[in-house]
C-alpha cells in the first residue's frame, strides 16, 4: 500500500509542475479568449534567457529581473506586432497567429543564446526527504514540495489579481467581449500588454522550475503538451482549475503508467493523460471549473 501512496503523491506533485505551465495558458485565455499556442516557447525563451544571463556572472535575482524584463518587452512587441492588427478578428485567426509566434520565439531564443543545453541549480535538492522515508517508507522530494509551495503562492497572487483589482476585472471584461470592453473605455491594448507580461512572468517561473529539474534545453517547449490535458480537465478560464486539473492528470498518468502500463507494453504516460482528458470532455466539455456558455438562438 505504501507503494501506491508513493506513486500517488509523486503523481500529485508532478501534476503541480504541469499546472505551473498550464497557468500561463489560463491567463491569456481568461483575458483575451485566445488559446496561446506559444506558451511552451515562452517557457523556453524565459528559462534560456535567465540561465544565459546567470552564466554571464549575474546573480540569481538580478538575472531573474532581467529575464522578466525581456518577457515584458516580448509582451509589448507581441501586442504591437501580432495582436493589435488582429483586433476583432475571429479567434481562430488569433490562435493561428500564436502558432507562428511560437516558432518565432523558439528561433529567437536559440538565435540569441544558442542551442546548447544548460544546467540550472537553484539550491533546492531533488532528493527524498529522509524523515518521510524513515517513518512512512514513502519518498517525497524536497524539490517537488518546493514547487508545490511556489505554485500555491502563484495561484493565490493570481486569484487576488483577477478578482480584487481593477486591472483584473478589466481583463475579464476584455475576455468576454473586445468591442464591448472598448466601448466602455477599457484600453484593450494596455490590457493585452499586461496579461501577456503576466503570462511571461508565469512562463519564467515555470521555466526556472522545469529547468532546475531537467536542464534548460529545447525540450522545455514540450512541457506545454503536458499542460493541454490539464486545461481540458480544469477548464481554460480557471486558475484554480489549472491546479486541480494538474493534480488529476499527474496522479492518473503515474498510476496508469505503473499499474496499467506493464499490461500494454509501458510508455503510456504520453497518451494516458489525453485519454483521461477525453473522458472528461465527454462528461463535462467545459472542464471542472470552466464557464458554461449558453447561446440563445
Amino acid at each position: 500500500m505504501n507503494f501506491f501512496f508513493e506513486v500517488l503523491i509523486g503523481g500529485l506533485l508532478s501534476g503541480v509542475m504541469y499546472a505551473l505551465v498550464a497557468l500561463g495558458f489560463v491567463l491569456i485565455y481568461k483575458a483575451s479568449g485566445v488559446f496561446n499556442f506559444a506558451q511552451g516557447a515562452m517557457v523556453f525563451f524565459a528559462a534560456l534567457t535567465f540561465v544565459s544571463i546567470m552564466e554571464l556572472g549575474v546573480p540569481f535575482w538580478p538575472a531573474f529581473a532581467l529575464a522578466l524584463a525581456s518577457m515584458v518587452v516580448l509582451a509589448v512587441v507581441t501586442e504591437r506586432v501580432v495582436l493589435r492588427p488582429l483586433v476583432n478578428q475571429p479567434q481562430i485567426t488569433l490562435f493561428m497567429a500564436t502558432i507562428g509566434l511560437g516558432f518565432l520565439i523558439e528561433g529567437l531564443a536559440q538565435g540569441m543564446w544558442g542551442a546548447a543545453v544548460h544546467g540550472l541549480e537553484i539550491g533546492i535538492v531533488d532528493e527524498p526527504i529522509a524523515w518521510t522515508m524513515d517513518n512512512w517508507g514513502i519518498g517525497v522530494s524536497t524539490f517537488d514540495l518546493f514547487a508545490a509551495g511556489v505554485s500555491a503562492v502563484l495561484v493565490t497572487v493570481l486569484a487576488v489579481f483577477f478578482n480584487k483589482t481593477r486591472v483584473g476585472r478589466a481583463l475579464r471584461a476584455v475576455a468576454d467581449d473586445h468591442q464591448a470592453a472598448l466601448a466602455i473605455g477599457i484600453p484593450l491594448q494596455s490590457i493585452w500588454r499586461i496579461v501577456w507580461a503576466v503570462a511571461g512572468f508565469v512562463a519564467l517561473v515555470a521555466g526556472v522550475m522545469w529547468g532546475a529539474r531537467n536542464g534548460v534545453q529545447f525540450a522545455l517547449t514540450f512541457v506545454a503538451l503536458k499542460a493541454l490535458p490539464v486545461l481540458i480537465i480544469g477548464g481554460f478560464e480557471s486558475v484554480a482549475g489549472a491546479i486541480v486539473g494538474g493534480l488529476i492528470i499527474g496522479a492518473s498518468e503515474k498510476i496508469g503508467e505503473v499499474y496499467v502500463g506493464p499490461l500494454v507494453g509501458g510508455g503510456i504516460e504520453g497518451w494516458f493523460a489525453y485519454m483521461v482528458a477525453l473522458l472528461f470532455l465527454l462528461v463535462r466539455p467545459e472542464g471542472l471549473f470552466g464557464e458554461k456558455h449558453i447561446d440563445r438562438v
Partner: peptide
C-alpha cells in the same frame, strides 16, 4: 519512457 522523457517518476518507482 514516453517521448521526450522529461517525466520518469513512475518508471523509477
Amino acid at each position: 519512457v514516453a517521448h521526450p522523457g522529461n517525466e520518469q517518476q513512475s518508471q523509477w518507482l
